[in-house]
Structure formats: structure tokens, C-alpha cells
Amino acid sequence: MPAPPPLAGLRILELAGIGPGPFCGMMLADHGAEVIRVERPSSGGLTDPSRDPLLRSRRTIVLDLKRPDAVAAVRHLAGTCDGLIEGYRPGVMERLGLGPDLLLADNPRLVYGRMTGWGQTGPLADVPGHDIDYLAISGTLHALGEAGRKPAAPINLAADFGGGGMMLAFGMLAAILHAKASGEGQIVDAAMTEGAAVLSSMVWGFRAMGMWSDARGNNLLDGGAPFYDTYETADGKWIAVGAIEPQFYAALRRVMALDGAEWDGQFAVAQWPKLKGLLAERFRERSRDAWIDAFAGHEACVAPVLGFDEAVADPHNVARGTFVTSGNVVQPAPAPRYSASATVPPRMAGAADSAAILQEAGFTAAEIAALL
């Protein structure tokens, strides 16, 4: 039997929000932390909680934070936790009476995680925004897209989730390790703009080495290179090519019969537009799956671009259990995997556990009835 999940024993209080805050809570819950989500009474929201993987695997308590007794209950719960996640604009938690000064005074070991777009300070701290805005001022959005065309937002993956929720989860765990060793809690200020910038660290290195142009779609990894791009096939589907290293490029040439001398200068940047055009014509000669069959066993770093339904049925993903179904919702399984520890099988959000959570925290039946 696998060992318990690696974060078993950690207790996190999550103040309900959307996007990166819940993603952080999901990551921690997936790996064994007990995460209690504090929801406000509401007639509805952007998503259906019972079908939203971001809300999986934690219990929920519904409290009206406009009421002093509800705020006091949250403060009491925070005193029993290792960490807290909140994603409001700067100053909101302080105005509620749940700011870090008060909660750290109650619980000096508490790690107080703050998720915002711009950060807790700076000229933009109080300005509203979304993933695309935070990505924009990080410099990263400028680099995304095809040559000669507008910047292309990668859904909301890079700022909300990669630079936001994932970065906050890392920061929370780093600070919790510190608190376990020192007894000292602290605030984690996770700004999506800064997280998105960190994700582009390799590109900043390439720029410093003179290996990256600010012109979109003209570089090694942004679709500028003919051997690192996506191509349409005869059936209107797409194939991804990542043949960077010489041996993989040689395999690409071999399978596609790219014998002309123009293919010898793999890194002759001036020739890249011409070679991309030739490759585009060549890939349109066969269907996507026919090309994948042709590349089988040749190690050219070529893969089919799969839609969501195709990804779920892909043999490699099936073998790895990359996707699971919970509550009739197909969703990504927890990642990464561990050699000794288990992760938590996803459990979709259900009815609120308000009374049970408050009872466990020591509230009387009368107090619970008044709060709810």
C-alpha cells in the first residue's frame, strides 16, 4: 500500500475566489492537505461547483463575512491552520478584520498566502485586471504569437495558473517548511505578473546571450524555427514538431525525405521562412495519423496535436492515468506522482459541511445555529 499523501497533516483555510486561488487550494488538497474552503452565501457564480475540478477534494463552510460573528469564526478557524489562502484586492481582508497582523498575532506559525495580479504594493496594486493584463506587463505576452501578428494569449494558463496558483502553492509550502523549523509564520505575496515573468526566465537568458529577438515568431521556441512549430495536415488536423537537437533534426529529414542542401544549415535563421513554407507543403500531403505512423520509431520529436476528447483516449495518457472521472466530470488527475506516497483521488464539491466543520472547531450547537 502507498504511504499517505505527502501533505497529510497540513491544514489550510481557503477564502473562496476564482481562478488561481482555487487552483492553489486544489494543488494542496490533491497532495494530502486538509483544505477548508470558506464560501460566502450566494445565488450563483461563474461555475457550477459540482462540476469544477478547481474546487475538488476539500470541504466547504458557508459564512456571511459581513457579520461579526462569522468573521470571528473564520479567525478562530485560522488559529487551527498551518496556512491561509486569500485572493482579494489589497486591503479587503484588513477591512473584514481578517488581515495578516491579526491572524499572525493569534497564530504565530500561520502562513498567510495572498494571491493578486499586481502584488500587494506598487502603483497598480489597487487596479483591477485579469490574466491577460498581468501577462502583458511581465513582457511574456509580447513574445507569444505568430510573426507579424498580434500577441496571442495562452488562454489563462501562464499568469493565473502557472505564474499564480502554482507559484503560490510553492511559496506556501516553502513558508510552511520555514514555520515548522522556526515557529515563525509569514505572509506570502504572490503576484501573477511576477510569476509570469519567472516562467520566462529561460527567454531572458537567451536574450542576454544574443539568442532571442524581440520580434515575435522569429526565434527558436516561438514558432520561428521550421523544426519547432505546428503544421496542418491533409485532413485539417495538426502535428507538432520539436526536432531541435541534431539527431532529432536528422530523423525529421530522413522521414520526410528532406534531402536538398538547403536543409543542411539547420540554424541558418535567414532560411527559416523558406523552409517553414516547404515543410508546410510537405505536411499537407498526408493525414495527421499517417504522418504519426511514418514517424513511429524514428525519434524525431513529433507528436499529434490532440483535442480534449482525443487526449483522454490517447494510449499513453490512458496507460499513465493522466485523466480521471469523478462525479461524471472528466478531469486531469493529480500530478506529479510519487514513488512512495499516494495522491488524493479527486472528489467533486458537494453540499457544504458548515455545521460539521464548526462543531469540530468547538462551536456549540447554539453558536452554529446562529452562524448558519
Rank of each mutant, 00 (worst) to 15 (best):
A3W: 12
A8G: 07
R11V: 08
A16M: 09
P20L: 06
M26R: 03
A29D: 01
G32S: 08
I36F: 00
R37L: 12
E39G: 08
S43L: 13
R51T: 15
S57C: 09
S57A: 12
R58K: 15
R58G: 00
R58A: 03
L65S: 07
K66T: 15
A70V: 05
A70C: 15
H76S: 13
A78K: 01
G79Y: 01
L84K: 00
Y88A: 12
R89Q: 12
P90R: 04
L103H: 01
G119R: 04
Q120E: 12
L124R: 14
A125P: 05
D126Y: 13
G129T: 05
G129K: 06
D131G: 07
L141Q: 02
R149V: 03
P151N: 02
P154R: 00
A158N: 13
D160M: 08
L168V: 06
L173C: 03
A175L: 07
L177S: 09
H178Q: 13
K180G: 12
G185H: 00
V188T: 02
A190Q: 13
E194Q: 13
A197M: 14
V198Y: 14
S201C: 08
S201P: 03
R207N: 07
S213L: 10
D214Q: 11
A215I: 14
N219D: 12
G224P: 01
A225F: 03
D235P: 06
K237E: 14
I239Q: 01
I244Q: 04
Y249W: 09
L252W: 02
R253L: 10
A257L: 10
L258Y: 07
K274I: 13
L279V: 00
A280P: 00
R282E: 01
S287M: 04
A290C: 08
A296D: 14
H298I: 08
E299R: 15
A300E: 04
C301P: 01
P304D: 07
L306F: 06
V318E: 14
A319I: 09
A319K: 11
G321K: 12
F323N: 05
V324E: 05
S326Y: 06
V329C: 00
R337H: 11
S339V: 04
A340F: 05
P345S: 09
Q359F: 07
E360C: 07
G362A: 11
G362K: 07
A370I: 05
